[in-house]
Amino acid sequence: MSPDTRPSLLLRIRNAADQLAWEEFLATYEPTLRRVLRSKGVQSADADELIQEVLLTVLRSIPTFQSNQRVGAFRRWIATILQTKLLDFRRRQKSREDRHLKLAQRSHPDDLWQVDSTTIEDLDKDLDLQLEHQIFFQATQAVRNMIHETTWLAFWKTEIEQKDAMIVAAELQLSVGQVYVSRSRVLAKLRKFVAERRANDEEVT
């Protein structure tokens, strides 16, 4: 899985025949987009719809995407698409709301909706953060199979579930030192996986 053996995801999804690349893209971006939308207060059903729209747009316009060779250009491009769709969605929602409220003849301030406040930079930052989370999650899925079950559990319980090392040691019948070492080794492997994936995914040449 090193950068030189694995062509950039972007290059691969440009190739319409590479179904696997698209699936990989979906596995990474779908949950990422979902969490970004959730953090923007979009309800789950609406998020489904929005994600569909964004992904379809990506699929349709990927052949015309022109990279400016900068790191993160691809992500920023997705952020731009997301912003457009989000704005459309909020306008739709707002006009629907207005129609409802008109019936009751009430006026209301616009501040709750902040229709024009979500900038591309803002979304790009959110995407970046959530991508990091997502890739870490994918790393746990990948690394788990490479190491011993007990080592994995020692990491999982102390680091992810944030339980006390002493308790975990007793549970797994390990020494505290072994728990510490296991955790550190798994963490290192995860970090390595994430660093490689991110470098690779952002490579656009």
């Binding site: 020494s175 505290v176 030192g177 510490y180 070492v181 550190s184 080794r185 290192a188 492997k189 390595k192």
Partner: peptide, 21 residues
């Protein structure tokens, strides 16, 4: 080295023992 994952298994075992105390 442990944090960088550069220890051999044997070294890691030793360190684990040491960390207990």
């Amino acid at each position: 080295q442990l944090v960088e994952d550069q220890l051999s298994d044997e070294q890691a075992d030793q360190l684990a023992q040491h960390l207990c105390h």
